[in-house]
Design a protein around this nucleic acid. Sequence first.
DNA 1: CACTTCATATGACGTTGTCAACTAAGCTGC
DNA 2: GCAGCTTAGTTGACAACGTCATATGAAGTG
Lengths: 186, 186
Amino acid sequence: MTRTETAAATRRALVRAASDLLDEGGPGAVTLREVGSRAGVSRGAPYGHFENKDHLLTELAINAWNSLADEVEQTRTAPTPQARLEQAVLAFIGMARRQPHRYALMFSTPASTPAAAEAADRLERNFLALIADVVGEPDAPRWCALLMSSAHGIAGMELSGHLAKDKWQVSVEQLVRMLVNATRHP
Amino acid sequence: MTRTETAAATRRALVRAASDLLDEGGPGAVTLREVGSRAGVSRGAPYGHFENKDHLLTELAINAWNSLADEVEQTRTAPTPQARLEQAVLAFIGMARRQPHRYALMFSTPASTPAAAEAADRLERNFLALIADVVGEPDAPRWCALLMSSAHGIAGMELSGHLAKDKWQVSVEQLVRMLVNATRHP
DNA sequence: CACTTCATATGACGTTGTCAACTAAGCTGC
DNA sequence: GCAGCTTAGTTGACAACGTCATATGAAGTG
């Protein structure tokens, strides 16, 4: 391996280590020392690849945005526009359930870098396209704002335990159906 | 002042200092050392009143929940049930705008203590009562779950900057109106 | 006044993010 | 193939932090 290749590999290993630590132990477990250690380098090595701990976390957030954008993009399999939209909303909640810390990180800070903004934009474009198929082009933006917000809200309430144990006599899946159903009445 | 009185005053000063620091500089600014300093005591003093830094933060969260519950409770002034509901949803968003860090703290962790759970419950009961006036008792719980989640989602999206600068050609107030309007079509 | 109790103060320890200085390995041109 | 530069990586150091064990002193009690 050439020098720049090993450097790139180290960088990938650092991101991977940080991502694993976040998933396993939450934000408090992401320590530059431990990240370096898991990547097989020393505690100071990350500073050769990231200006900051924040910059490393931002990269994790970008990956999360892209991963969610991919998932929304792959709802093309569902038969009807409503079903696709339902699946897209459930993608938010599914990610929040599977990787709660990763999901929380996405929204922990305003998209600070151009790359982060672009990743978020990609998700929003995908979502917007799905919604346009349901409510039509002109109304799509407002419904997109509302449905993404609500999807995020359901995910967040689920994360913080406020939708637990049928306190509301309703499942998250039913909530999503109610939400998508609302688009049929302008 | 008797001894227990001064102790209670110190405790209040600690909570107040922590609250101020949170509002002013975000969670990173809340340092036990600085909290003690602002309350006029030393860095170790908080441990006489709170087991932990987390316990102090939990108390801040409880105060936030209660404050939001109060605000929702005071929507009785609005004329129609729909207007009251709209106002309640806007209370979430208003608090997120005025005190973003405080708002984020409320949802940062599952209600860890009985006191925190009770504070959250109070808000939920108030919200539920408002909704029952709009959709009727039987459907109130599900709509409460959906509307609180959506209110929280809009607040969160606003906080993280994803509803900024009429990217969606819609104001937050219009989003809330669309949301409340959705309750009219079961 | 002697004794207890308890809020507060202080010293200490381990951990963390960060930086400056250093090392060594790879790449370049001759 | 060797001298010189470039650069990824290491190490020592520092300040700030949460936390605890211990010390202190004043308020309360008999």
